[in-house]
Amino acid sequence: MSSPHDLTKEVTFHPEHSSGTGRIWKVFGILSLLTIIELALGYLLYAKHGEWSYTPVISTKILIGVLTLAKAYYIVSYFMHLGDEIRNFIMTIIVPLALFIWFIIAFLADGESWKQLKNTDGHSRPVTEQAVPAANHGEKK
């Protein structure tokens, strides 16, 4: 356990951390502000529930999602100091996670299409879908 300092040190770029805690509090302020904006938008969705049409609701939800990504950026980059690592290291973490962009698009589209298939009965279902005798139409809303 008492191995010398140099042996236990990880081979990562070690920056000179700024001596003050100013940046930490600043990031905390940004995270709190983003959370408060998210909550305000959440309450807006609640207040306008049933009043708004599909487009404003989905736009607000996407905006909340973008704010969440901004929060994730600040946590990872400043609290976890990933921004201070060397570029190649950052890339080995970020690039695999980029797969999520496709996962999200593909799986949500899949869920949506599943819903459409369940909701469509024999009369409105496209001809190609009727090749299989539709004994069980699934639940209709």
Binding site: F107, L108, D110, G111, E112, K115
Partner: peptide, 8 residues
């Protein structure tokens, strides 16, 4: 998300 999108 997939399941949530797949129900009415």
């Amino acid at each position: 998300g997939t399941i949530r999108f797949s129900v009415n």
